[in-house]
Design a protein around this nucleic acid. Structure first.
Lengths: 142, 142
DNA sequence: GTAATTGCAAATACTTTGCCACGTA
DNA sequence: TACGTGGCAAAGTATTTGCAATTAC
């Protein structure tokens, strides 16, 4: 994992970002949590809490998103969620509308073919998709 | 379509909502546009502009969502999108990240089986999904 | 040394609520 | 008549920006 951390930071450097403490800790936090997180969550997380301002986290995420290293997700809540994009890896999510928990679905994504078809038929570029399942988890169903 | 309008209003009545002008025009607007819309768009649309306050539209949408007649979507923008739920009908969307246009994908949704599998394996209740494709439309690609 | 990055505070954007008036059932 | 609904205005929450100071390269 620290390899992945290093690789990701390298990708940031390659994109022209400066290697700052805040950047490292942000990437590290996203990696170790392995799920989409909100700006507030990130800014309040252990690694970033005493490291930098929320505005800094915001601007970092914005820059990273601009370079395709991070993606901003909708996920129904009022706050936006951000997820680290790891090359060759794609995740769909299962979200509980009761407690808000988010977990990655570990099953092959069934959308690939349709995505190709849409790309072909509509001429859209840079196509990608987001798939989320919403429901009430067993805990919340009680 | 006016039949669908009538049916939808009937469903609202059955859910206990009062039949007000604002409700009718809101449903009508959502139906005739046939795509998810934001609160601001709705409040500013021809049928509602001179009909009622934005707060009213907000509360109507909230009530409708509570009764499962409307669903709130993420869709990446800062503002939330709302879509009318028509029984037996499901839509996936294709969104241009350049101009923000949203259209329904008219192809069978490939997620059904995975949804069943998740329902079975995780015990989630009231499961549903959202699938969106994002990309740059031919217009914006120039 | 220079341009990117950061902190702090202020400005926006969108959503949500309070309260009293009004209209539907 | 009674209770759901609506208007207006104010409050709340999350995001975004300005600017001077700082830091990476």
């Amino acid at each position: 994992m620290s390899t992945l951390l290093q690789q990701t930071i390298d990708r940031c450097r390659a994109a022209g970002l400066r290697r700052t403490k805040a950047l490292e800790e942000l990437i590290h936090t996203l990696l170790e949590n392995g799920r989409p997180m909100t700006l507030s969550e990130l800014a309040a997380s252990p690694r970033l809490r005493n490291q930098c301002d929320k505005a800094t986290v915001f601007r970092l995420l914005q820059r990273l998103a601009g370079h395709g290293l991070v993606r901003r997700l909708g996920l129904h809540e009022r706050a936006a969620y951000f997820t680290l994009l790891v090359p060759g890896k794609h995740s769909d999510y299962l979200i509980c509308t009761g407690c808000g928990s988010i977990e990655a679905v570990n099953a092959p994504c069934p959308v690939h073919d349709l995505e190709d078809e849409i790309r072909r038929k509509t001429g859209f570029r840079n196509l990608y998709h987001e798939l989320e399942f919403f429901g009430t988890c067993p805990e919340c169903a009680v």
